[in-house]
Nucleic acid binder design. Sequence first.
DNA 1: TTCGTCACGGTTGAC
DNA 2: TGGTCAACCGTGACG
Length: 412
Amino acid sequence: MDRHSTTLRLNEPCTRFYCSRELAISTRGCRTLRLGLPESLACLPSPGPEASQADKLRLNTTVIPSLEGTMSARFPELYLEPNYKKQTYGEVNQLGGVFVNGRPLPNAIRLRIVELAQLGIRPCDISRQLRVSHGCVSKILARYNETGSILPGAIGGSKPRVTTPNVVKSIREYKQGDPGIFAWEIRDRLLADGVCDKYNVPSVSSISRILRNKIGNLSQPAQYESGKQAQPQPSISYNHLYPYSYPNAMSPSGAKMSSPPGVPVTGGHVSISRGWPSAHTVSNILGIRAFMDPTAVTGPEGYPPKLEDWGSVNRAAFPSAHGVNGLDKSSLDVDIKYPQPSSTLSSYVPPCAYSPSNQYGVYSGPAGSYVGPGHHWQAQGTSLPHPGSGMAIHSGDIHSSMPFKHAVRDGR
DNA sequence: TTCGTCACGGTTGAC
DNA sequence: TGGTCAACCGTGACG
């Protein structure tokens, strides 16, 4: 991002639909950016040379009481959308908020929703204040209450296959042993013999298809075994707690489950495959990784890691042993560097549970220029207690390295 | 008025 | 490389 483009962004009408009505209105033609922010926030540490451009912004120091002292007030960068005008695919909902159809709300908003809910603010009020539909607020809060994660689920991808070579082999054996066996009988036997569990047992139709396509003529050589079975694969016994979840860090394919340098993958750990299970599984909730590993926080290129590289962000991920009040020492160190106003609410937002592409949402400006990496707000951490868990979400990294999506697309 | 639910149109990523 | 599929998303409407 060059300096010129940065200047353009800052001089353009901006929107921050989730800050205040005043701000949203100001984005529609008025070039004066008016932020409902505490006065002190006008003096946030400069992220770098380009940040001096921010001085061109005239800050209205009117404080929105409900935002004062909160993440969104403390870290207005997360809520700024300086490039909104350039977004051609953002839409405006009935409340005046901007959203991208099909894409998750940014972590900052999700976190804000949870924060406000924990302050006792009703969902309907949260909906109005943040300009997010009440259905969405309801959904995010329900998910948080259920899983403790504020993160969206993993988008895209496919289910792991249930018709593993081992299953096919067993079906073949059943069929050979009893040519008249029904598909449902095979299904029962797969369960009875422990080849599959109730979560990954193929459907009767799948078994029929296997019989028809892969086994078919039993008189023929075992073409499947001679081919794909050349390298015997263990039966994937998916986690009984969750369909399609994996018992360990390995994905069915064994690929893309890499652990970041210095982060050993241990059995039963949280390194999950992308969407299966989604970001809010039990194993995910119990996940611990990445927080201690900078490379997991920002990808090798400075971008947030993929979802599969994040065991989700959640309360359990940061045992108190790592720091004070669940705050990792490394975060504390950064806090010392960048002292922040105290707040009773603090939150951990995972660097990002989105895939990188998810990060390139309309909601955030390119952090590389707008907010330099490693700045005060990135290391912020407070705890967001989850009902019934006593654990906390840490929001040390609402990773703002979220370049604009269109920029990425343009690069394609 | 509030809130849970669901259809809808959309995006994403594995296959 | 492009298509398909099935996951997820937030919105908006309904009750």
